[in-house]
């Protein structure tokens, strides 16, 4: 690792101020950033650790019934305490392994927007709102391709608000070595329609599968997906699976998610 200083502010305001320095970068749980620093793929001069900011941690229910999760909340806490939204709690409980879940945070995962990460699928399928220190961003506008988001330099994800669906499930086809999603599909059924978000598959990162959404909105059953498929063009192709294989898995995982939804 290159050398850098670490600061540990205890409020969002202090963290924002610390991030105004050139070459400063936020540190969430470090489960992605520390390996990146070890490979010298990042060279911040200051890391601003968010782990001491109490106002960014924890889960509560908003006035409109949505589940509000602090940006610094760990995957383990979401798994244990987001019981009001079962699909989301079980997604968090299957990220990586217990030690990763004890450090990694929802804000870090959404800021990183790895094309194979789990949380982006939940945020997009829920029509979640990403709240930062300066504004609120709809999930539909937030994800902008592989590792790209609407966040500005120095902007911090302080909270994520999830409208709670009637039924939901996330199905991940695990890449067994990394434990990330080879393909993961999150299905969420709301009173006004079904949303389906796919991670791990596209070179553009997480995306909504609108044909499946339309079919499931009129008939929420695996049968409704019969005959629907996504094209292998633009799908990630690597030694773990071809684009065509991933495209096939999208259909399979969507059906499984519909069957598992509760």
């Amino acid at each position: 690792m290159y050398s850098f200083d670490i600061q540990r502010p205890s409020t969002v305001a202090d963290a924002v101020a610390a991030l105004a320095t050139d070459e400063a970068q936020p540190l969430g749980g470090g489960q992605t950033l520390i390996p990146t620093l070890k490979q010298r793929l990042a060279a911040p001069s200051v890391l601003v650790s968010l782990s001491g900011i109490a106002e960014m941690k924890g889960i509560c229910t908003g006035d409109d019934g949505s589940l509000c999760i602090g940006g610094g909340t760990t995957h383990a806490t979401v798994a244990a305490e987001a019981g009001a939204y079962l699909g989301l709690a079980s997604l968090a409980g299957n990220i990586g392994d217990p030690a990763v879940r004890n450090r990694g945070t929802i804000g870090g995962s959404l800021a990183n927007n790895d094309p194979s990460a789990c949380y982006p699928a939940a945020a997009l399928a829920s029509g979640a709102t990403i709240v930062t220190n300066s504004r609120e961003i709809a999930a539909d506008d937030y994800f902008q391709g592989m590792f790209a988001t609407a966040l500005e330099e120095g902007e911090i994800v302080t909270e994520v608000r999830f409208p709670v669906p009637e039924k939901s499930a996330y199905m991940k086809f695990e890449q067994p070595a990394s434990r990330f999603a080879l393909v993961g599909v999150f299905v969420a059924k709301y009173a006004d329609g079904v949303r389906v978000a796919v991670t791990g598959a596209s070179e553009e990162g997480v995306f909504r599968w609108s044909e499946a959404e339309a079919a499931l909105s009129s008939n929420f059953s695996a049968d409704a997906l019969e005959g629907l498929s996504v094209s292998g063009d633009g799908m990630i192709s690597d030694l773990h699976g071809s684009g065509a294989y991933r495209a096939h898995l999208v259909g399979v995982m969507t059906k499984r998610a519909v069957v598992a939804a509760r």
């Binding site: 670490i6 540990r8 470090g30 520390i34 650790s49 383990a76 392994d97 030690a99 004890n102 450090r103």
Partner: peptide, 21 residues
Amino acid sequence: GACVVHVNGEAVKSCTMFAAE
């Protein structure tokens, strides 16, 4: 996971956490 220790009672990978934290 060879480096797992407990920090405030929770298992963490000590190679993936800074001492300052």
